[in-house]
Design a protein around this nucleic acid. Structure first.
Ligand SMILES: [Mn+2]
Ligand SMILES: [Mn+2]
Ligand SMILES: [Zn+2]
Ligand SMILES: [Zn+2]
Lengths: 154, 154
DNA sequence: GCCATTAATGCAACTAGTTGCAAAAGCAAC
DNA sequence: GTTGCTTTTGCAACTAGTTGCATTAATGGC
């Protein structure tokens, strides 16, 4: 089921927000992309149609759309936050801190943790779109092979 | 067991790094604090002793100490990253996105997830010091009470 | 203690993101 | 379509954090 533009406009209006050309275009660009988009890339895309749009508008609208659950963001540690439309089912990303390789995973893996946090701490964790850092399989192997070279491994 | 200053110096030297007065003071300030410290607070602390120290030094040393596993950082979404010395056992933080209340939790809660990621994806996730966002118990109750006011809840 | 090597520092210029405010524009009522 | 109210925008100034580069200083060998 595809979310139509008018649904999104309604979703904003119902909450007292307005559908502006800038917002409509941002949602369209995000919805039409199969990759994450940075605020800067999005701004460049928006400016192809409306050249005078300011970056503060892009940032403020991304914040709003994220609050409303229409968009989700993630920080891969590359110096800029990345955004995408919030589709179902949710997914997360595993990021290798050594080679930067990423693995996309289904959010089901987090269900048990979510339950534990709810049971033990009465806390409902947002597990919509996380980035977890660590070592991928290839880099674990590399690290093991290198162990002999370090006189005092941690 | 308390980590002594000389141990930290050794830990740097073994890897080809040098123990400088700036680093020594940063580690001492971090080690002497029972709270998280921002880069800015740390810079102010360092400047009480060495007034000409530049912020780039603080940021670069925090990056190095984090890479070496001596310090860990966390982003609570307050516009500045917070740092603390890396003590055992590890802990994480649950942050309410509504009231900003935080709960500190033991990292054991994450052991099962870690195993699943390792088994299914051969990925060793760094679960040293995470911040998870969500809704605390009080804010869940508040949100439920408000449901009647929203004609179209999400 | 002195020298050579190389890591670390201070500085200035930069990028990503935020904020206050006046002007513009969306929406509802008429 | 006009009016009025409120949200949103564009802009400029700001904060947090990063980077390149010339200078300084920590370390090891003598
Ligand atoms: Mn994603
Ligand atoms: Mn902590
Ligand atoms: Zn890797
Ligand atoms: Zn709360």
């Amino acid at each position: 089921m595809k979310t139509k533009q008018t649904d999104l406009a309604d979703s904003l209006m119902e909450r007292g927000y307005r559908m502006t050309p800038q917002r409509e275009l941002m949602l369209s660009l995000l919805g039409g992309s199969d990759k994450h988009l940075s605020a800067d890339k999005l701004l460049m895309g928006v400016r192809k149609v409306y050249p005078r749009v300011n970056k503060s508008v892009v940032y403020r609208n991304l914040e709003l759309l994220t609050e409303l659950g229409l968009v989700s963001c993630v920080d891969f540690g590359n110096g800029r936050v990345e955004y995408e439309v919030h589709r179902h089912p949710h997914h997360h990303h595993l990021v290798c801190r050594n080679c930067r390789h990423t693995i996309m995973i289904n959010s089901d893996t987090f269900a048990e943790l979510q339950k534990q946090l709810s049971d033990h701490y009465h806390f409902i964790a947002d597990m919509d779109h996380l980035a977890l850092f660590g070592l991928c399989h290839a880099c674990q192997t590399k690290a093991q092979a290198q162990q002999g070279h370090h006189p005092h491994p941690l």
